[in-house]
Structures are given as C-alpha cells and as structure tokens.
C-alpha cells in the first residue's frame, strides 16, 4: 500500500473539512450581512488612497425622495424597492443603501454592525488558517485540489466548462474526484479570495496601516482596498450561489448529509 492511499480517509469529506465548512458558512453569512451594515454608513466606493463625498466614486448607491439607484461610473440603474429606497416590514420607506433584510442588525447601527463583523472576522481568520494548515497536513490539498497534468489539457478544460455551463451535473454518488472547474474554483476561493478579504479588511485599519503600510500599498491605497473588499465579497456571493445551485442539482439531501456526517469515499479508478 502506498503512502498516499494509507493516508486516504474512508470518508468522502474529512472531519476538518466538514467542521470548517459549517463554521465558515456561518461566518461568511454574518460577515456579509454585518458588512452591508457598515457599507450603508457610506455607500460609495473609490479608487486610490482617499475618497469622500466630494471625490469621484466609481460606484455609489443613492436615493432621491422617490427613487433608489445604483450608479456604476456614468450608468445609473433604478433600484427602487431594493437599494437606496425601500420599504421596511412596517411599510415605512427607508433610504439606506441595503435593505434591512440583508443587514445585521436589521436596523441601522454602525457600532453593532462593526462588533458583529470583527467578532466573526476573528473566527473566520482563525478557521481559515487552521483549515489550511490541517489540509496540507492531511494532504487534502495535495490529493484533492492540486492541479494534475491531465487537468490542464485544453480538451479537458473545454469539456468541463461545457458541462458546467449546461448545468449537467453528475449525481455526486458517482463522482470520483474534483473536476478542473471545481479545483480552480476551490483553489481560487481558499487561496486567493478569502485571504484577499482578510488582507483588504486589515488594510482599512489605520493602526494596522501605521505599522504595516504595505497592507494598503499592495492594494493601491486604503480606498482601493475598501473597493476590493466589497468586490471580493460579491464574488464570494456569486461562488455561494453557484455552489448552492450545484448542490441542488446533484442531490441536495445526500450532499448535506455527507457534509455533516462525512459520507463514504468512492475509490477513484486508477
């Protein structure tokens, strides 16, 4: 028996993966919703080091008494009822950017939003670090996520992309390993997006910047870091939506059961 197969667990998902998955799901949900509370305090995004009301915002949510809108550059999109002008559960019109159902807390409190955000940011960051260390240690990353030579073949990438685009998902029970699109998504999320979320978050702290100016410098300034924090958050939302769609298409009950109890690993055909 080779070293690798000795280390291969019997379970489809390792315990560390399962714990992290659910801790992370909770963290990301709270971080997103409390983050939207913080965004509501100043719903404008800039590039560069500085940016406030008198400076050009590349993206802004605004409102007039009768209308809410989202502005990207020079393009204004009417978002009445959803962004910038919406009704709360009692039917009262509110003009914050994101509506109460999308924020934590559902009423506007920057102080409370920040407290939720930082608490779960700590758990999220510690969780990500432990998961990375554990997943190198138990070879989850090397065995399941590492790109193999066959993954890079153009034909393989093309076939995998076509399958995903047509939402042709195999029943998970028959799947042997991650395909190239899955691998690239997971690598992108775990090693790029999530660390970028943490670093751009830290880059917004004046105390962190004083000690490590490189934090905001690598992102092109504090306001750029804030913009990237926001963009990366919405890429994560996109990832989440696709992830949920795939779970629903590939047998949601089994998928959730396996992510809780581990499930049985199907030995890959060599």
């Amino acid at each position: 028996m080779s070293q690798a197969s000795e280390n291969r667990p019997q379970k489809r998902h390792r315990l560390s993966t399962r714990i992290w998955h659910w801790v992370n799901a909770l963290c990301l949900l709270v971080l997103l919703m409390s983050g939207l509370t913080i965004f509501n305090a100043h719903p404008r995004l800039y590039w560069g080091e500085y940016g406030s009301n008198n400076d050009y915002a590349w993206m802004a949510v605004g409102s007039s008494p009768t209308q809410g809108y989202l502005r990207f550059g020079d393009t204004r999109i009417d978002t009445t009822g959803f962004l910038g002008n919406w009704q709360d559960s009692e039917g009262k019109t509110k003009t914050w950017a994101f509506p109460g159902w999308a924020t934590i807390p559902s009423y506007y409190s920057l102080a409370e939003g920040r407290r939720w955000h930082f608490f779960f940011a700590w758990i999220f960051s510690i969780g990500l670090t432990l998961f990375m260390v554990r997943s190198f240690w138990n070879r989850h990353i090397q065995q399941d996520l590492r790109m193999k030579r066959k993954d890079w073949r153009p034909g393989n990438i093309w076939r995998s992309t076509k399958k995903h685009a047509r939402l042709r998902v195999q029943k998970s029970a028959t799947v042997e390993g991650y395909n190239v699109i899955q691998k690239l998504s997971y690598i992108g999320v775990i090693f790029i997006l999530l660390p970028v979320m943490i670093l751009t978050g830290l880059a917004m702290s004046p105390a962190m910047d004083a000690n490590w100016p490189i934090l905001s410098d690598i992102f092109g300034g504090r306001q750029s870091a804030r913009s990237i924090h926001f963009i990366a958050a919405f890429i994560l939302v996109l990832f989440f939506l696709v992830h949920i769609l795939k779970v629903l298409l590939s047998g949601p009950i089994d998928q959730v059961k396996w992510m809780i109890f581990g499930g049985k690993r199907k030995e890959p055909a060599r």
Binding site: R44, E49, S52, N53, L110, M204, R222, R226
Partner: peptide
C-alpha cells in the same frame, strides 16, 4: 496624513 472615518471614507 490620512483621516479614516468610521463610516468608511478617507481624506488626506
């Protein structure tokens, strides 16, 4: 120096 407001904006 740069002032960072708790609301999110900055000014130098």
């Amino acid at each position: 120096t740069r002032l960072d407001c708790v609301e999110g904006w900055s000014a130098i």
